[in-house]
């Protein structure tokens, strides 16, 4: 089965629908017109550009170009993790912890999945590596930013409780126990929900795409299962590392709660 290519003008039809939505929202004074249009334009430009980049990348297949694109994706995700936190750690710690956690978890799991499970030749073949890493990073980013946001916000609100626990001689880990649990739950919830609903409520995007592109559903399903499992693993370890490093940074070496290390955007 050959894939039906979409002509650009046909995408214009979909864009007209967005314009219709924007116009309706504007007339109804619903206040989302501007952000809707900006986001729609961004998605068109960003995806068109990445299409060009991927075309070039698939043509060259050189390891250093793939590594460079992976690094750029990681840094952008790191910036996004910072932007999605209300209160965040000062002095680059928010970026460092978020990026570090995503790097260790997403890259390890992606390389493992490529080298051991899928096994293309060479293992960094961009047709496999880049989409897989993109999905890993996208989901890990959500998990890490939700977990860190929850951690910082809860610590800020529950300052008195944490300090009272410290006053009674608890270690900083004990004083932070409940909050750490909440933050982990907050970071893991989207992945767990996605796994629970997959196939019944929602047909995941990657599988849909593969089926549209002509893969037999049985193959698409196997890839989707692989992707959902490794996404959850990546998100879980990423959130765990972020919560553990972030929690450590909120206390100093005398186990004092240091809210002065947090900043309001």
């Amino acid at each position: 089965m050959e894939v039906i290519d979409l002509a650009w003008w046909k995408l214009g039809l979909a864009a007209l629908l967005v314009l219709a939505l924007a116009a309706t929202a504007y007339l109804g004074r619903l206040g989302i017109t501007r952000s809707l249009l900006v986001a729609a334009i961004r998605t068109v430009i960003q995806l068109a550009l990445i299409g060009l980049v991927l075309e070039a990348l698939f043509a060259s297949s050189a390891f250093y170009w793939i590594a460079l694109l992976a690094a750029v994706m990681l840094l952008v995700a790191g910036r996004e993790v910072v932007a999605r936190q209300g209160r965040r750690l000062k002095d680059g710690w928010a970026f460092g912890i978020g990026t570090g956690a995503m790097f260790v978890s997403s890259f390890t799991v992606t390389v493992l999945a490529l080298a051991v499970v899928i096994g293309p030749e060479p293992w960094y073949t961009p047709q496999y590596a880049i989409p897989l890493l993109g999905m890993m990073l996208g989901n890990t980013m959500t998990g890490v930013s939700l977990a860190l946001d929850r951690l910082n916000d809860s610590v800020w609100r529950q300052r008195a409780v944490i300090e009272n626990r410290l006053m009674l001689g608890q270690t900083w880990q004990q004083a932070l126990e409940d909050i750490r649990r909440e933050a982990m739950r907050s970071g893991m919830m989207p992945s767990i929900n996605a796994m629970a609903a997959a196939g019944i409520v929602s047909l995941p995007g990657m599988m849909t795409g593969q089926i549209l592109a002509g893969s037999p559903p049985a193959v698409a399903v196997k890839y989707q299962i692989l992707v959902m499992l490794i996404i959850t693993v990546g998100t879980g370890f990423g959130a765990m590392m972020a919560v553990s490093w972030g929690g450590r940074r909120l206390f100093d070496d005398r186990e004092r709660l240091r809210l002065d290390r947090l900043t309001k955007p």
């Binding site: 410290l166 009674l168 001689g169 186990e255 004092r256």
Partner: peptide
């Protein structure tokens, strides 16, 4: 000594006690 060990011996009761 580690801070939590110190605080086990030198216990502070704040003006507003907290219960979690």
């Amino acid at each position: 000594v580690p801070a939590h060990q110190w605080r086990r011996q030198v216990v502070m009761v704040p003006a507003e006690s907290q219960w979690w």
